[in-house]
Computed example of a mutant assay.
Amino acid sequence: MSEDSSPGSRPPAVRRGKGKSRDEFRAQVQVTRADFERQVQARKAQLDATNERIAERTGRNLILAIVIGLAVGAVVVLTLIFIKELFLPFGMVMAGFASFELAQAFRVTGRRVPRVPTVIAAVSIVPATFFFHAGGQLVSLSAGILLVIVWRFVDEIVSRSQRRGAGALGRDLLWGVFVQLYVTLLASFVILLLAEPGGEWWVLAFLILVVSVDTGAYVSGLSWGKHPMAPTISPKKTWEGFAGAAAAAIIAGILLSVFMIGEPWWFGVVFGVVVLLTATAGDLAESLVKRDLGIKDMSSWLPGHGGFLDRLDSILPSAAATYVLFLIFR
């Protein structure tokens, strides 16, 4: 066999042809990759632009709101379905942060609501209500209010250089009690309902119903909202959004009543309408408080949502209303 015909040798033309093919393949890969990157960037730009328009109209980052909402929802569902006692630490965290946010917001505007006793009272009422029911709720609430009042009196006595006078002190005490009644008391109804036999399903049902009301209002208001519902309190809330929330509430109420809590379909209509009204009223009430304080959100701890209280505003009064329905119909 000659040297030219050995397996390791190829004619120059063949080698050039193979090299050219490899270069063309690499070039094609680079072109495809560049085209893919351009498409990804274009899609990202469209998504960012859409998200900015939604955020401008609704005041929230939709993507972050969905991610955080799904994470919180997963925790709620897992704890309620498997071991409802595991919901207690979650409830203590939510009540503690919400009460702290409201107390801090008052302090920023010059209303000296003590934060430490406020948080202690909000956290303590959760286990007290779960293990001792209505008696524990009442005792814990009373002790929390007393703790806030005494703490504020002691602070006034110790801080001689920052005394505010009897009138300002009285207003501080009223705001401190307001936090206990608004956040601590209403939040405890979730735990009071949870402690009942089968109560975990009622808690899950009314939470899903509140989310349905919020989602229905959000989608309907974003798509068709033109007529403001309460322009001086919440300019972005519209009657079209309220109509969407009503439809979502009734549909979800019927489904949850029949398939989750074992109640007749007509109870679902009542359930949906009641939660629709309480959730809307809670949202407007918190908006009124924030407008009075001159703030947009209670905090920025939950990106896309604002603060903990911004997410609990519809839940708090709905929890009390659902517990009343539970007592009446069960």
Rank of each mutant, 00 (worst) to 15 (best):
L194C: 09
K44H: 11
A320Q: 11
S318E: 10
S287I: 08
L186S: 06
I295F: 10
L293Q: 10
V179N: 01
M94P: 00
R10P: 01
W175P: 00
S5H: 10
P7Q: 14
A98G: 11
K44M: 11
L174E: 06
A252R: 01
E52T: 12
L302S: 02
R33F: 10
A134C: 05
S21Q: 12
F178N: 02
A195Q: 11
I120S: 04
G136V: 06
L255K: 03
W224V: 11
L88G: 06
W239V: 10
E263R: 15
F130K: 04
A281E: 06
A71Y: 01
R330C: 12
L174W: 08
Q30F: 03
G110T: 10
V210K: 05
I295D: 07
R43A: 15
K236T: 09
G307E: 13
D155M: 06
A205S: 15
V31G: 00
Q104R: 13
V324M: 15
L276M: 09
V273Y: 04
T109R: 14
L284K: 08
Y218G: 03
L327M: 15
T118F: 02
V67W: 00
G253P: 01
V190D: 00
S299G: 06
L316A: 09
L309G: 07
P12Q: 08
W151A: 15
Q137L: 14
I68E: 00
W301D: 01
T232L: 04
F242L: 12
V93Y: 00
R107L: 10
I149E: 08
F100W: 13
